[in-house]
Design a protein around this nucleic acid. Structure first.
Length: 881
RNA sequence: GGGCGUUUAGCUCAGUUGGUAGAGCGCCUCCCUUACAAGGAGGAUGUCGGGAGUUCGAGCCUCUCAACGCCCACCA
């Protein structure tokens, strides 16, 4: 970094002018590169690969920031860290984008043909692949770009084929005809988790099916009359007395004339609708099951585009009509011909395609599935036995609930962009071979379907590490990964699949912790989406407020419970103001470091204020480490904000101004100022990387070449000064009281006044020790003391002001009795806790049965209490002496 | 139908084993005190959703009611 004159630094932190240079400095310095041969313990994260079609949004910004914080923290804490970046080929999403572009030229993918289309899509992909990761650089992401991966690159493709073939050979992948969720717009099957349900106001039509050969009819309630031509039976409940005589009889489908039986099946709810259900196995999952039980052959009446089929069962006038248009016409005709008995308003849930919102058509078709139950067993165990931990743990229940009721995963998609299914069919015999490569391209053709995008992302933690080559350096060093950071919205899509696949193919859980954070919402709590126009562009925020401001604000809003975050632009002022505070406090310290050396702090020369700030810093380091390890990242932000602003800036720096003027204290004060700044910056670095690096480079005589690889501060008992820390709190209380009194008497801050403290003379000594601080920080010229035997008036208004002299009863400055009482109470509480802990530890039953860890904890706590006990006792003594 | 979450200061929200309620913003008063007005000093503000219980003591634990939100299931 270039040397900079401290006095030339701007008084307002200029994020824009800083961040790019700093990022370049890290990148060129190779600080992000992981070394697989390192002897240090490994800490690794794989990025949830954003879609190549994606544009960076607030959700990414949060997710990437949290990962970067963990990576940077561990990098500074002695780990060999690897953060793998990459993108997802996003099958359908990408295909849709490219198709849209083609449509502008008046072309469809069918005009190009499969091969050309894929070529085009690769072209598009290669052009856009880096974009979103480049945007992540603006976030300060310290990922190892040399290891960037793509879910459709050679390595991932090889892994996909390997996994598919192995699962097939194990009987865990099968092909079959089942009802799937079909999106008529995407023209593809989608999986259960890709189907979202929305409540819609619809109708329930009651239709009369006439009995064959006798008078009478059975009345059936349906929401989907257009499927009636696919009916293969009418079902009633076996114990339904209304219909018991009709079971086994035949009815005639209105408008079509086809004959179908009345059957009995437990599936029917006697109390819903009319108690009689039409059975359409080709277009309803429940009906499909009923049909199977009764050996009824399904009849397709709606095609893959959602149009009525031109088949014998469907009356000609409906052929080719869209399903909704057909519904309307059929209802009209039923009504006209008196088959329609009743129409009711009916609210029901309708499945929608997660990607395009089109209403799903349940369709019987031939698809590939993964048999999940055997895979889920281990995935459940891994979470139950603690190999994988969810943070917050309530997501564990959510995950287990889903896993325990797992259904087979439909993995085939009728699209072109994606991993083509490695199954090959003999051109003549149709014989199928599942293999990594085509056994004989002359005679075999590959299955035309592609795999669900999540199939390849499910392998991400190990496909990025070189698997199936389990001997690769990265795999050996960095797999399994450490933490997975993501939003709860993709637990089923992605997290669950990674866990099952990871366990099945590597025998290990792909990560030990799943850190789930909330979703970013707009200020009204609504989901951000482009169509609603309520998005906030993180890049714009970075331009305006700075990356560190964005990161700090977001981080501070993360709660341990992982609540969703309501976001509005003004909130980033919080982080920006803090960055500015860091900048200016640093500037002040740097400007006052002339003549400082690289020696350690001289403990013999520490003032009470020095000891207080060092004690506070030390405690802060302890809390920060604990909270990061517990994933209480928001708490870390708050602790650091409070320490830096309220302790370091508001009190210590102000006190240092006094000490710097004292020749005998100057050098050591400089050392303390420098040391505390240095350590504070290090602790802030994971959250606010740029500004901390920038300032750190300006600190004279620091060892090490960059804060990014400096050691993260840890607690050390050599910096414990509990007595001084307590006493200093009295100083603050005194000064605050004085300021309060001054203001209540309208004494201008410009006026320095004298004060006379009336108190018992024995307390004089307490104040004499801190006179310098009081004089400066409460703007006092002289302090004198008078005996407290003078009448003690009531609080606050009791100070007497005359000729800029304030006479104040001590009780107004600081209530020593109350302080004593407070400390006594604290002490009592500690003692009672100690008593109960000792009772526990002295109980032989407890010692025999409790886990070793708990016993150790109890002992440690008792020791802790004893130390505090001593401190408080000392303090009470000094208060009363 | 099942599960989860939320309800605390005007607003947005923290509050880790129960021990005298906190932050940021906003508001009021004063201040350009030579790091910072994106700042400094001082101040006001809450029967912690309602009710009941356990406890010496409950924002926190138990029960119950209410409102809002989310997830899963999917009765045609």
């Amino acid at each position: 970094m270039t040397a900079t004159k401290i006095n030339d630094l701007p008084t307002v932190y200029d994020a824009k002018a800083t961040e790019e240079d700093i990022y370049k400095f890290w990148e060129e310095g190779g600080y992000f590169k992981a070394n697989a041969k390192s002897k240090k313990p490994a800490y690794s994260i794989v990025i949830p690969p954003p879609n190549v079609t994606g544009v960076l949004h607030m959700g990414h910004a949060l997710d990437e920031t949290l990962q970067d914080i963990l990576i940077r923290y561990h990098r500074m804490s002695g780990y060999e860290t690897l953060w793998v970046p990459g993108t997802d080929h996003a099958g359908l999403a990408t295909q849709n984008v490219v198709e849209k572009n083609l449509a502008k030229e008046g072309l469809s993918r069918y005009d190009l043909g499969r091969e050309k289309f894929i070529e085009k899509t690769w072209e598009w992909t290669n052009k856009h692949k880096g974009a979103i990761l480049d945007q992540c650089k603006r976030l300060g992401a310290s990922f190892d770009r040399s290891r960037e991966r793509f879910t459709f690159d050679k390595g991932c493709s090889d892994a996909v084929k390997e996994v598919f073939v192995r699962l097939y050979e194990k009987g865990l992948i099968y092909k079959g005809k089942y009802i799937v969720n079909w999106c008529p717009r995407c023209n593809s099957a989608i999986s259960d988790v890709e189907t979202e349900y929305a409540t819609e106001q619809g109708h329930m039509w009651e239709i009369s099916y006439a009995l064959k050969g006798e008078s009478g009819a059975i009345i059936v309630a349906t929401t989907r009359p257009e499927t009636m031509f696919g009916d293969v039976a009418i079902a009633v409940h076996p114990s339904d007395h209304k219909y018991s005589e009709l079971i086994g009889k035949t009815v005639i489908i209105p408008l079509s004339g086809r004959e179908i039986p009345i059957i009995a099946d437990e599936y029917v709810d006697k109390n819903f609708g009319t108690g009689a259900v039409k059975i359409t196995p080709a277009h309803d999952p429940n009906d499909f099951e009923v049909g199977k039980r009764h050996n009824l052959k399904p009849i397709w009446v709606i095609d893959t585009e959602g149009k009525m089929k031109a088949c014998g069962e469907v009356p000609q006038q409906f052929h080719g009509l869209d399903r909704y248009e057909a519904r309307e016409k059929i209802v009209g005709l039923l009504s006209y011909e008196n088959f329609l008995l009743r129409t009711r308003e009916h609210e029901h849930n309708v499945g929608k395609c997660q990607r395009c919102g089109t209403t799903i058509e349940p369709l019987l078709s031939e698809q590939w599935f993964v048999k999940m139950e055997p895979l889920a067993r281990e995935a459940i165990k891994a979470v139950k036995d603690g190999r994988i931990k969810f943070i917050p743990d309530r997501w564990e229940k959510n995950y287990l609930g889903w896993m325990e009721n797992i259904r087979d995963w439909c993995i085939s998609r009728q699209i072109w962009w994606g991993h083509q299914i490695p199954a090959y069919y003999h051109k003549v015999t149709g014989e199928m071979v599942v293999a990594k490569e085509n056994p004989d391209p002359e005679n075999y053709v590959q299955d035309t379907d592609c795999l669900d995008t999540w199939f390849s992302s499910g392998l991400w933690p190990f496909s990025t590490m070189g698997w199936p080559d389990t001997d690769s350096d990265d795999f050996k060093k960095f797999y399994p990964t450490s933490t997975l950071v993501t939003g709860f919205d993709i637990i089923f899509f992605w997290v669950a699949r990674m866990i099952t696949m990871g366990l099945e193919f590597t025998g290990k859980a792909p990560f030990s912790t799943v850190f789930i954070h909330g979703l970013i919402r707009d200020e009204k709590g609504q989901k951000m989406s482009k169509s609603k126009g309520n998005t906030i562009d993180p890049v714009k925020i970075i331009d305006k407020y700075g990356c560190d401001a964005l990161r700090f604000t977001m981080t501070s809003l993360c709660t341990y419970g992982g609540q969703d975050i309501k976001m509005s632009e003004e909130r980033f002022e919080y982080g920006r103001n803090f960055a500015n505070k860091i900048w200016n406090a640093s500037r002040f310290v740097l400007m006052n470091l002339d003549g400082v050396d690289d020696k350690d702090i001289d403990f013999d020369k520490l003032t009470i204020a020095d000891k207080w700030i060092l004690d506070k810093l030390n405690k802060t380091a302890k809390e920060v480490n604990e909270n990061i390890k517990d994933f209480r990242i928001g708490e870390v932000a708050h602790i650091l904000y409070d320490f830096f602003w309220n302790s370091y800036c508001d009190w210590y720096v102000e006190i240092a101004k006094i000490q710097l003027q004292d020749g005998s204290l100057k050098l050591n004060t400089q050392r303390v100022l420098k040391y505390v700044l240095d350590m504070a910056l290090r602790m802030l670095h994971p959250i606010m990387p740029h500004i901390t690096e920038r300032v750190w480079q300006l600190i004279p005589k620091t060892s090490g070449d960059a804060i990014i690889v400096s050691d993260f501060p840890v607690y050390s008992d050599t910096f414990d000064f509990p007595k001084e820390a307590q006493e200093m709190e009295l100083v603050f209380e005194t000064i605050t009281s004085l300021r309060n009194i001054r203001q209540s008497f309208n004494i201008s801050p410009a006026v320095k006044c004298d004060i006379e403290i009336r108190a018992a003379l024995k307390e004089k000594v307490v104040f004499e020790a801190i006179e310098a601080y009081i004089k400066r920080l409460a703007r006092v010229e002289n302090i004198s003391y008078a005996d407290g035997s003078a009448p003690v008036p009531p609080k606050s208004a009791s100070a007497v002001v005359s000729a800029s002299k304030i006479v104040i009863p001590l009780a107004d400055l600081i209530d020593l009795d109350a302080e004593t009482a407070r400390q006594q109470k604290k002490l009592d509480k500690l003692l009672s806790e100690k008593k109960s802990l000792e009772g526990r530890i002295n109980n032989p039953k407890f010692v025999a049965n409790a886990p070793q860890e708990l016993i150790q904890q109890t002992k440690t706590r008792i020791a802790e209490i004893e130390i505090q006990e001593k401190n408080i006792t000392d303090l009470i003594k000094s208060l009363n002496s």
